[in-house]
Design a protein around this nucleic acid. Structure first.
Lengths: 249, 249
DNA sequence: CTTTTTAGTATAACCCACATACAGTTGCCT
DNA sequence: AGGCAACTGTATGTGGGTTATACTAAAAAG
């Protein structure tokens, strides 16, 4: 032992950062971390995260289950790497014109799209701080687009964490609706309406007056743009940021 | 069959709403849905959600595993009911003075506290729309505190969904930090600092300039109030709502 | 007293993550 | 050359998980 590593990271995470030297000895590996991640992601895309088991991934790659553990410390580690792979490279916001608000707006939409496209990743619980290249890449571009503002570093970080949380919640909500419609067989557009019918049965007007007012207003029966909620929440939050930016200017 | 039920709900969910008639025949039940939920919650509180298995719950109640399935359709159903039980009754906001903003602030803090107190519920994925009594109760009181505002029903609902999502994310973040410190053995206060050390090693200044600026600023090394982030995000969002409210007045 | 409905049991099928021991392969060092 | 050391993938097994199915015993209804 030469020196302490400070805080230890899982070996596979260091591997995706390219911090891992190739061992010289031993037989040539027929497998690779990339192939494992790719195989696992393929299963998740096709059949959902529930279909991803170590055994299944191994069979698809033509190896035994335990072979995977030469590259990955645990299934949880693999899930983190799958998520990172699915995120992919962040969008290049510098190329686009417009101030910080336009940049962040684009950033949020891009994040929403990625998460909706690969909605299996929303079912993977967040394990803690981000430590993988693409995740940090997204954070980086978001922070960068706040570079011109008078916000201090702490505020910038808070903005990005709150925004990414907001987007994740919205994506999860959309994905839940998707599952719900798939499970009940209702058309996707009518999901809120059929939910409204359920609520009417459960929530008595005496105990739930405000909720009943919402139902009675019919907003859940009208089909509007699916992104209305997202836009509303996003604009409110950005308005709040803009207020602070102006105060500090 | 007499009539269609419209949308079908799991039997156990109807049971907690009190929509279930008692059957007359058969032996007297020694078990009850309440006891099962209570037992499961007790395990989760003491040892985390990972310790909750059908077998474990059954053993604690002195019955066999399969006995639980007379009351609960699946483990997922039980998890939903556990969550509802942990939420408990929503706070009474009408008792407090102040406008909608004070009410929502109190609502958010209360929600944060509940979720941090029973952080195991943050590890249970949200299954879709809320359908349980306490969850709808929280939504109800939140909506009610927006009653005086000129927002339309759709906007009110959007505000509440966004807010509850925001609080959940913040609570999850706090819980993740907790797990992280427990796992690495570092003091709770130094978790962000030790994370900063990891980032310094991974994120090169060339590729991650903005991120490095944050690290270099030392904001992650200073211990500040743990709720700073929460307050910041909350105030920004509420500022955004307030702007809209004034516009519509 | 018989029939019907229900509560809890017993058993087992099937899947899962992962530990451990092993066999075969490759390069390094002497 | 030859042995050592390191490494890759395999084989097998353990202990856990959810839940289907078939059952026994109990209670009420006719």
């Amino acid at each position: 032992m030469r020196e302490t590593d400070g805080a230890k990271l899982p070996a596979a995470i260091e591997a995706v950062w390219g911090l891992r030297e190739r061992p010289q000895k031993g037989p040539k590996p027929g497998l690779s971390l990339e192939r494992i991640i790719g195989g696992a992601v393929a299963i998740a895309e096709a059949e959902g995260i529930g279909a991803v088991s170590m055994n299944r991934v191994a069979v698809d790659l033509g190896v035994t289950t335990m072979a995977l553990y030469r590259y990955v410390g645990s299934k949880d580690e693999l899930l983190v790497l799958m998520t990172d792979a699915a995120f992919g490279a962040p969008p290049d916001l510098a190329a686009e014109p417009g101030g910080w608000r336009a940049g962040l707006t684009r950033w949020c939409w891009a994040l929403l799209h990625v998460q909706c496209e690969h909605s299996w990743m929303l079912r993977i619980p967040v394990n803690g701080y981000p430590t993988t290249p693409n995740q940090l890449g997204w954070l980086e571009t978001g922070l960068a687009s706040l570079g011109d503002t008078p916000l201090d570093e702490h505020e910038k970080l808070s903005v990005m964490l709150t925004l990414s949380g907001f987007v994740r919640i919205q994506a999860t909500l959309a994905s839940d609706i998707d599952d719900y419609t798939r499970a009940t067989g209702t058309a996707a557009d009518d999901a809120p309406a059929s939910y409204a019918r359920v609520l009417e049965k459960l929530a008595s007007p005496e105990r739930f007056p405000a909720l009943n007012a919402v139902i009675a207003s019919g907003v859940m029966d009208r089909h509007d743009e699916p992104d209305t909620e997202f836009i509303f929440g996003l604009e409110r939050f950005l308005d709040g940021i803009e207020l602070l930016v102006r105060e500090k200017s």
